[in-house]
């Protein structure tokens, strides 16, 4: 038993997320078909592709917000089978940042960050508060800790959302178009926070069209179209010499 457990513990370069032959349908619409992806611990992956290509669906399957129809997903040694213990086990280790922030409007910024650590990790109020303030400081918004989400700008709200996810001390962070709902002048503050997080060594899977960000931090760019992974490459190669016609079209559209 011990040996088995030890065998599951992986070295720094071993994969922390494994997705095999993933299928996801919404009614008759096939959102994902035969998707394979591995993410190594510490790796930063940028998922891009036209809208409706399945990028968001893919990362939402990784923490089981969407239930996959076929294939395997293994996160940190736990396979997502539909058992609630496994799902919550995975979710505890996977932080997620949404396009629309999804902060809890009736709780203050610091309370947003304290809720899950107290309820899920069993931290005391004082411990949760200390951790929350520490991470709010990290995203440079601790001076707004007692305000409510509705009193903050979009960029500030998204940084709070990042801090809230980090308060669970996740091993992986998923970002679902974190800057798409922001006014242009607020994009940078959120991207800067994400770059810092990347430099701290966090494993990250980001759905984003911010190609500057991809160039700066991505180890790998994964290009999706119509529910399939079409191309994977390091950012330099992907941007300079995309192999597929579809990737070239896509890059042509987003880089004006």
């Amino acid at each position: 038993m011990l040996q088995l457990a030890a065998g599951n513990k992986m070295g720094p370069s071993a994969s922390i997320v494994t997705v095999e032959n993933l299928e996801k349908r919404f009614g008759h619409f096939t959102a994902l078909s035969d998707v394979n992806l591995t993410v190594a611990a510490g790796e930063k992956i940028v998922l891009c592709g036209p809208s409706g290509s399945g990028k968001s669906t893919l990362i939402r399957c990784i923490n089981h917000i969407e239930k996959h129809d076929a294939g395997r997903i293994v996160v940190d040694g736990v396979e997502l089978t539909g058992r609630m213990e496994d799902i919550n086990g995975v979710r505890r280790e996977v932080g997620m940042v949404f396009q629309s922030f999804n902060l809890f409007p009736h709780l203050s910024v610091v309370e947003n960050c304290m809720l899950a650590p107290m309820k899920v990790r069993g931290l005391s109020r004082a411990e949760a508060h200390e951790r929350a303030i520490g991470l709010l400081r990290k995203v440079r918004i601790h001076d707004q800790a007692n305000k409510y989400p509705g009193q903050l700008s979009g960029g500030q709200q998204q940084r709070v959302a990042i801090a809230r996810a980090l308060c669970m001390q996740p091993k992986i962070m998923l970002f679902d178009e974190p800057t798409s709902a922001l006014d242009p002048e607020m994009v940078k503050e959120v991207l800067d926070t994400m770059v810092e997080l990347a430099k701290d060594g966090m494993t990250m899977v980001c759905v984003t069209h911010e190609m500057g960000f991809a160039r700066e931090i991505a180890d790998r760019v994964v290009f999706m179209d119509r529910g399939c992974i079409v191309e994977e490459a390091d950012p330099e190669t992907f941007f300079r010499a995309p192999r597929t016609e579809r990737a070239r079209d896509f890059l042509g559209q987003i880089i004006h």
Binding site: I65, R91, M96, F98, S100, N102, F104, K119, A165, M168
Partner: peptide, 14 residues
């Protein structure tokens, strides 16, 4: 908003 439920799921809240 659905997003509120999803945020709770993502945080592993019961």
């Amino acid at each position: 908003n659905r997003g509120q439920f999803e945020a709770c799921q993502a945080l592993a809240l019961s």
